[in-house]
Nucleic acid binder design. Structure first.
Lengths: 172, 172
DNA sequence: TGTTAATATTTAACATGTTATATAAATCGC
DNA sequence: GCGATTTATATAACATGTTAAATATTAACA
């Protein structure tokens, strides 16, 4: 019950590291999968909390980001919160309807929006933040502060290391 | 160009580790964000490749998983490939239409589907696999095999460590 | 000045994630 | 055997991810 089943688990080519010629790496050793599963495990701790207040993870990220500066342009906000512009556009519409953020227009550039969090939005954050911090503390305690720091470092370095040239295949 | 902008970056509370009373952690030190950005950086290397063959990341995961056993039930497949059942249901419909997988029904349990990859599906994998492996090699070379191994270890341990009790808030 | 290229944001279309619910078939209890 | 509960899968509804295209505005430039 809960096991991947015990039948017919054939053809896991060559274990963890080795690869015979022409075979793919073992399915388990997929970096995107490992990152995904870790993220899922972490989010499982936070999602219920946000859901109690009818916020999605992404909406929460946007609100959090908006507390780090007085105003944001949409593009900056998208970069900082790692949300694509199309998604952000929809999210801002939702958050604006709920009165958690507000939009203005920049004097010098009429296409740029000036997005900021409202007092109501700050209230929402103040309401959730302590619980969020508690979950963080639980995770840190369970995993170990030192290993967590190491993990942060590796993740940042990985993103830096790959993020620069953005795919490596600009040709064609 | 590409920088987060230099204006009004106020109120990043207390740097990386410290937190003043009542304040939240710095937005940058969000574990879900760090995992997300690392994953995005990695996927940016693979997505174009899959896209050339009209496959999404998830469809690819399902196909890959199907090569590790002769048959799968939908539930197992969902677990192994870290895709939710609703998503998997849609994905299987798509892949079946394209002839990359096929579905049967189990003798002993008429609700369970027996899902397997078709020869055509294997061809698709054989076509993409070498390119995928090359990308992997690039990533390994850029990041370092040793650090990559350490990262794998930490990610697995994090998922194990949190995955067990599945959220920690079973009450109510 | 007027035309073109670049930039900021939005919308469209489709695939997936998340939660809740529905459907069907097996299992348990009697 | 029959009904209630569980299990396996599918659907529904809404939010987001991804890619492409549209819109509006600014900048560049002849």
């Amino acid at each position: 019950m809960g096991r991947p089943s015990r039948k017919a688990v054939a053809a896991e080519p060559t274990g963890v590291t080795g690869q015979s010629a022409g075979e793919m790496r073992a399915f388990r050793r997929s970096l995107p999968m490992a990152l995904l599963k870790a993220r899922e495990a972490v989010m499982a701790r936070f999602r219920p909390l946000l859901h109690e207040h009818d916020l999605t993870e992404q909406q929460w990220r946007v609100l959090r980001a908006l507390t780090t500066a007085d105003e944001f342009r949409a593009g900056e906000l998208a970069r900082v919160s790692s949300i694509s512009m199309p998604s952000l556009s929809r999210i801002l519409r939702t958050l604006e309807k709920r009165g958690l953020i507000q939009r203005g227009i920049e004097d010098k550039d009429l296409r740029a929006a000036q997005i900021s969090i409202t007092p109501s939005g700050r209230d929402m954050i103040a309401l959730i933040a302590p619980h969020s911090e508690r979950r963080y503390a639980e995770i840190t305690a369970a995993f170990g502060a030192d290993r967590l720091a190491t993990l942060y470092g590796l993740l940042d370095e990985l993103a830096d290391c790959l993020g620069g040239s953005d795919g490596g295949d600009e040709e064609e």
